[in-house]
Design a protein around this nucleic acid. Structure first.
Lengths: 116, 116
DNA sequence: ATGTTATTTTACCACTTAGTTATTTAACCT
DNA sequence: AGGTTAAATAACTAAGTGGTAAAATAACAT
């Protein structure tokens, strides 16, 4: 039950609807009904997604009359980013290995092809 | 059921045990039993976590006699990183706002404190 | 052939998640 | 007060997750 912050953040991001909501919020704060429009989903479902995002600290909700406008809070993404960045050298390394492999193929071709 | 790649990646990362396994694998390829050692968890449980990681393409498993050594495949993290990086300006922006706020506090203090 | 070690699979459990419909709350407008 | 709009909550369901213990597989070692 007491899931760590990073797990909570990643779990919140592990859903295309929620990621789309965050993407929408980069355009600015907006209401729940507005957020719900692009989705073939009932409002309570969106409401739940928003609660997950709020729980992860990825959005905050204001109050304007009967609207509860949401706005992006990207803070938690910083930790997520930092965690992933630790692995950058590993994915770049494997691209290097691909590069090496391609180079290897090319040099192996040389003796045969001869045609430069 | 047909969850997109990004969701699968984030879901795989949304568990401290799995993140710890990935961290261990940065030190090099190793066996399942070896991977299981730091955890108070049965081997089948670890086996399941490995299956999740494998399903997300974050590890690959080899064969050496009765061992099935795992090694890190960081590729999918690249996409995850790219997705998150889209939001960098938003978390940096909010830090800016914090900076602004702190500056504001400081300038508001001046007239009162007077003592520099 | 028999045993041992490494790992997976099966069957089960408690809990969570993502969605639904129906109801309720809150604030606005006459 | 009564009606409308925005959103949340409640109650439910189907499917997924994370764990277990026990059995099955696979490859090695005698």
């Amino acid at each position: 039950m007491p899931a760590d912050d990073l797990s909570t953040t990643f779990a919140a991001l592990a859903d295309p609807t929620r990621r789309a909501i965050l993407a929408r919020l980069t355009l600015g704060e907006t209401s729940v009904t507005e957020l719900a429009k692009p989705f073939e989903m009932t409002l309570p479902a969106i409401s739940k997604h928003l609660k997950v995002l709020e729980g992860a600290g990825l959005i905050r909700r204001g109050r304007k009359a009967q609207w509860r406008p949401c706005r992006l809070q990207a803070g938690p993404l910083k930790n997520a980013s930092n965690w992933i960045e630790q692995y950058r050298r590993f994915w770049e390394e494997s691209l290097d290995r691909l590069g090496d492999y391609l180079n290897e193929l090319r040099t192996k071709e040389k003796p045969d092809g001869e045609q430069e």
